[in-house]
Write a protein that binds this DNA or RNA. Structure first.
Lengths: 117, 117
DNA sequence: CGATAATGATACGGCCCCGTAACGATCGGG
DNA sequence: CCCGATCGTTACGGGGCCGTATCATTATCG
């Protein structure tokens, strides 16, 4: 059951959601940070720095820095893996879950406003 | 004719598109920069610094800096308004139009892959 | 054990961006 | 004319993020 949407509709939706994110004063996340955040919240755990780096096709320091920022924003946390203490497990937070949920609702709401254009 | 999409679908779509943008090596635009870019390409001209600042709910220097960067990336250009030389008109570029078009196609493509989840 | 591999974090020089405040250029009304 | 209003830009100190190289810690295997 594919979702049908035309490029012109997609672009209007993309713009409206970004406009809302900016206007609501949400932290100005980059595409990389957004991809990391959503991957952690939508994909099955466990999530590691190395795993995220591979999925995004970026280097490990990119992930470490993004986690620093997202952690500072309270959107997720890090925990050492006690089974293999080299690993760090990225975990969800209540604030992060709420932010992701709000984003989902935001997209859904604006989708309703997208006409046949 | 509203577009029907559930929050869980919206989030998966949002993630997939951001993943592609990151993996394709596209410049890592922030939410603000994306909002500006799409506004210029989807809304009717003319676009001014002040107008964009008002639409996004941010200060003028934010727009100026974003235009510096987007201009450096070749995604748009600035031109002085000869009618009122205080104004600067933001204009589209071929590269910018292509980038926006790619984004629209990207969203549309991934929408097809979104199932009933 | 000891050597090697793997993980995530850090150091570095450089650039971008922030918010606030001030600036020069330009227009318009008295 | 000139003064005030408006336009976009720049200056400032501070912080974030970049890519590359290196680091300390931990695990693995001979």
């Amino acid at each position: 059951m594919p979702l049908e949407i035309r490029p012109s509709q997609a672009l209007r939706l993309w713009r409206q959601v970004h406009l809302d994110l900016v206007r609501d004063g949400e932290p100005d996340l980059s595409a990389r940070q957004t991809a990391i955040l959503l991957t952690v919240y939508l994909e099955l755990p466990p999530h590691t720095v190395r795993g995220l780096a591979k999925q995004l096709g970026v280097t490990k320091p990119v992930i470490t820095r993004a986690l620093d920022t997202l952690g500072k924003l309270g959107l997720l946390t890090r925990k050492r893996d006690e089974e293999d203490r080299r690993n760090v497990v990225i975990q969800r937070t209540v604030a992060g879950a709420l932010a992701v949920e709000r984003l989902g609702d935001l997209v859904t709401e604006h989708a309703k406003d997208i006409g046949a254009g």
